[in-house]
Amino acid sequence: MARRPLGQLEAEVLAALAALKRPAGAAELRARLAGQPAHTTVNTILSRLHDKKLVTRIRDGRRYLYRLAVDESRLVAGRMYDHLRYANDPRSVLSQFVQTLSPDEEQALRQILDSLDRDSS
């Protein structure tokens, strides 16, 4: 059975865990999410992420603490690549993406591309 792509709330939970850089419970994660979804919703998302092996969990009394089990940058990059791979016009998609970058993000991208050029020379 094929796995569904990550949903927006799953991605937000993963980003919150990555930002914390330590284990966290559902209540703490819920407080960091936009719109503060229901506690049961956050628990369901965490359970799904655990089933997908994207987070690990440890028992802490009556609750679980969750920790990111994957490299967030690789996960997000993989999602971006999956979307780009299925685009009819990848060049246009890349152009639109670059136009949405902040000046700092654009500078970081230029530095990365420059370093890749130097490494391949």
Rank of each mutant, 00 (worst) to 15 (best):
L68C: 07
G35D: 03
A19I: 01
R62E: 14
R62P: 12
A11Q: 14
L54R: 10
A19S: 08
K21T: 06
L17I: 10
R48Q: 08
E10V: 10
A11N: 11
E10M: 05
K53Q: 15
A31R: 14
E10H: 11
R57L: 09
L46Q: 06
A18I: 03
L68E: 02
L17G: 08
R22Q: 05
L65I: 05
V13C: 06
R32Y: 01
R67W: 02
G35L: 04
G25I: 04
P23Q: 07
E12A: 07
R48V: 05
P37E: 01
A11I: 14
R57D: 03
P23M: 06
V42N: 01
H39F: 13
D51Y: 12
L46T: 00
A16E: 04
H39G: 13
K53A: 15
A24S: 13
I45G: 02
A27H: 10
L54Q: 04
T40A: 14
A16K: 00
L46E: 05
E12S: 04
A31N: 12
L46D: 00
H50I: 04
P23G: 01
T41Y: 06
E10A: 13
L54F: 10
Y66A: 05
L14V: 02
A27K: 15
T41H: 07
P23D: 03
A15H: 00
A34Y: 00
P23K: 05
V70D: 05
T56Y: 10
Y66E: 00
D60V: 15
E12R: 00
L65P: 08
A16H: 08
A24Q: 09
A18N: 08
S47N: 14
A27R: 15
H39R: 15
R59E: 11
V70T: 10
H50A: 13
I58K: 05
R67D: 06
E10Q: 13
A11T: 13
V13G: 01
Y66T: 07
R32C: 02
A15C: 06
L54G: 07
L20S: 00
R32H: 05
R62H: 14
D51Q: 14
R63P: 12
D51L: 10
G35V: 04
S47G: 15
T41E: 08
Y64L: 11
L68N: 07
E12M: 05
K53C: 14
A69L: 11
R59C: 07
A16V: 05
L29S: 10
E28D: 14
K52W: 11
R57Q: 08
R62N: 15
R62L: 14
A38D: 12
K21Y: 01
S47E: 13
A11C: 13
E12K: 06
A34M: 03
L17S: 04
E10K: 08
D51W: 12
Y66F: 12
Q36F: 00
R22F: 03
K21D: 12
A16T: 09
L14M: 02
G35F: 01
G25F: 04
P37Y: 00
L29D: 08
I58A: 00
I45D: 03
V70L: 07
Y66P: 09
Q36E: 14
A27F: 08
